[in-house]
Simulated assay, not measured.
Amino acid sequence: MKTGAAIAHIAQLARLGLPSRSVVPEMLGALANVVPSHFCMFMWTDAQGRPEDFHLPWIVPEAIEANSRLLAGNDGFGSLIRMGLSAAEACRMPEFQRSPFYNECCLPYGIGHGFDVPIRDGGAMRGMLVATREPKTPLFSRREGDLLRSVAPAFTHALAADHVVRAERFAPHGERAVLTVDAEGDVVEAGEGHEALLKAALDARFGAGFSASAFYAAARDLFRPLVAARQAVTSFDTRHGRITIRLYPAAMPAAGRRGGGAGHMFALIERRHPLALQAAIGVARLELSTREREVARHIVLGHPPQQVMREVGIGAHTLHDYRRRIYRRLAISSREELAARVLAG
């Protein structure tokens, strides 16, 4: 994705008015396309800058627990940050590579250095945008730093939506992961990506008191009544999307294999994103101009022409021309075909 398109996509996501935990992962994904890095992460903070929650490309409960503990402590890196240094500045200090934070939270995961951008609402700290790179790789350039700083207002706007209550419709498809749970609801085996979906299902936050044992204990409390009642399907909404859990009896395994046993169940967890978010993600993949993508998103969501004209800032004839151009470029002829293309899981 080109830089201009990525920045426009990030701004569009921020304007959706959805909870920040729904849109921030996709915003980070768009940002990673234009600022090469090991990974981009976001940290929600309280007004004093203390960590409250994280979004990482993967979730390693033990690492997040150590991250929160060490940032709150007095090790070298935490002290440098509290002195007012940015992560980019702190990473250049000799204390950084000697710190427990570097050795427990960076080195094991291939992180050599980083660049951070504080996200503020007025004078209050609301979050931290962080990009990292592997050891012995080039530091972030001035241009890359300016680009990371330029998207800070979009992240501030996304966080502001957390105070707005709005109805959400959900897309027909979503992410999935399969776990095996025993008769007590304990997770005995889990597939790739299960941590992120469990976090969403538990609506969990990773603060300074977070621990991996508490995380899986909460999962047991979630699954135990479902397994006991043999409740085949249950759905509920969180800030992260609509969660659906389906239970299936686990077949007895062959000798020596894990994943089955008396009372064991397969738990399929699915997270469906808000329809507005899925539409924004889907149109970003289309070979259209930025303005055409915005019009296509409104068409998929079924917004009336007056709303589209007002929000995009165009007239009726221009809207008609955009619609005709979009359909011609995508070789389709109806809103239903456009929606199917955009919302395909």
Rank of each mutant, 00 (worst) to 15 (best):
A5C: 06
A5I: 09
A14P: 12
A14Q: 03
V24T: 07
L28D: 06
V35P: 01
H38W: 09
F39M: 09
F39D: 05
M41F: 11
M43I: 13
W44M: 14
A47I: 11
H55L: 12
S68I: 10
L70K: 06
L71V: 10
F77V: 02
F77G: 05
S79H: 12
L85G: 07
A87F: 13
R92A: 05
R92E: 14
M93F: 08
E95R: 06
E95Y: 12
P100I: 06
C105G: 04
I111A: 03
G114K: 05
R120D: 06
R126Q: 08
G127R: 08
V130W: 10
A131I: 06
E134T: 12
K136L: 15
K136Y: 14
K136V: 15
T137P: 11
D146V: 10
H157F: 14
A158H: 07
D162H: 10
V165G: 01
R169C: 03
P172Q: 04
H173A: 15
G174N: 00
E175R: 09
R176F: 00
A183F: 13
A183K: 09
E184Q: 13
E189I: 00
S211E: 11
A218T: 03
R220K: 13
L222A: 04
R224D: 09
V227A: 08
A228T: 09
R230E: 14
R230I: 00
A232S: 12
G241Q: 00
I245P: 01
A250K: 05
M252Y: 14
A255H: 15
G260M: 02
G261H: 01
A262E: 15
H264V: 00
M265I: 07
L268I: 10
P274K: 01
G282W: 01
S289I: 07
E292T: 04
V295C: 00
A296I: 10
I299H: 04
V300K: 02
L301G: 01
L301D: 06
L301K: 07
G302N: 05
P305E: 15
Q307C: 10
V308H: 06
R310D: 03
E311T: 01
V312N: 05
I314Y: 11
T318Q: 09
D321P: 07
R324L: 02
R324M: 07
R328K: 15
S333H: 14
A339H: 07
A340Y: 11
V342M: 06
V342F: 00
